[in-house]
Simulated scan of single mutants.
Amino acid sequence: MKRTLIYKIEEKFNNMTIEQFIRSKGFSHKVIVALKKTPNGIVKNNIWAYTRESVSTGDILTLTLNEEESSDKIIPIKLPLDIVYEDDDLLVINKPSGMPTHPSYKNYDNTLANAVAYYYQQQNQSFVFRCINRLDRDTTGLTIIAKNPFSASVLYNAAKNRRLHRTYEALVCGRLEGEGVIDAPISREVHSTITRCVDTKNGERAVTHYRSLAYHSDKDLSYIALQLETGRTHQIRVHMKHIGHPLPGDYLYHPDYTYINRVALHSSGLEFDHPITQKHLKFYCPIPQDMNII
């Protein structure tokens, strides 16, 4: 997949080197190396240029990223793909339940990566799969796919520095009122490669904000909204179990399938600045039907 970016140098960047300028735009070292290796990857005023060259006010700098190979070992498979938003730099997808994000053992042809690979194969485009906010297999909702290494670099950095805001909605057992913050470190459980637990000695810091939205007394279920400050594996599921309100349908932490047959968690909101244009983007996707039971 090819992406060309054109910059007209403003006065505040006068006399910077090309490398200094493109680093100021968020290009990582890895992406800069890729630009150097791409024929005509860096062009100043229609002439190929070295990154050590300086730029002047009014110069036109053209950067071209060109990936001709697709992700190894991802088989293009025709699967449901609900695209909420797409442009030259990213996809926002509403992922269904039962679909892993990445291929793994026993899941090599039923993943979101397979579906995206097929989507671009039909357009005769190469595609490297880069998911910014990976969702667990049974978690539904919004996830971002970067379409080139530059947008991936900027978005990964935004997530790391808490500039990518994620909102989740969930069903939890019991009556949960008001709002609160769970600040409890999480680590892998001893003798397990999958499950996590709150571990005050060896865990990494994990912070979850929650807010109650509704309560169903007959089912004894609460409907809540959550926001994450950190992104630990199974964070919401572990934190809610820790405070005595596990998610129903959670095969790892609370396998009660009375009202729902999968973990009752949905990625409902994403808010971030576009990696190239810096336009503020905001997306919301309502809960699926199987969670609409309160």
Rank of each mutant, 00 (worst) to 15 (best):
K2G: 13
Y7M: 08
F13I: 01
N14D: 15
N14Y: 08
I18S: 04
E19L: 10
E19Q: 13
Q20Y: 10
F21S: 01
I22D: 01
S24M: 10
S28V: 07
K30N: 09
L35H: 01
P39K: 15
N46A: 08
A49T: 01
T51C: 08
E53G: 00
S56A: 11
G58A: 07
L63Y: 06
S71D: 00
I74A: 10
D87F: 10
V92Q: 02
P96E: 13
P96I: 10
P100G: 06
T101N: 01
H102W: 06
S104Q: 14
S104H: 13
Y108P: 01
N110T: 03
L112C: 01
V116E: 07
Q125W: 02
F127P: 00
R134E: 13
R134T: 11
D136Q: 07
T140K: 07
T143I: 12
I145A: 08
K147Q: 04
S151V: 11
N157I: 00
A158Q: 15
A158T: 03
A159E: 12
A159H: 12
R163D: 14
R166F: 05
T167P: 00
Y168M: 02
A170D: 00
A170V: 04
V172M: 02
C173A: 13
C173I: 11
R175C: 13
E179C: 08
G180V: 01
V181A: 09
D183F: 02
I186V: 14
I186R: 05
D199W: 15
N202Y: 12
E204T: 14
E204P: 03
A206K: 06
A214Y: 08
Y215H: 11
D218P: 04
S222F: 10
I224R: 00
I224H: 03
L226G: 06
Q227H: 12
Q227A: 14
L228G: 05
G231N: 03
V238F: 01
I243A: 14
L247K: 02
G249T: 04
H254N: 14
I260H: 06
I260V: 12
A264S: 14
S267R: 11
G269S: 08
E271W: 04
K279H: 11
F283T: 03
P286R: 10
I287W: 07
P288L: 09
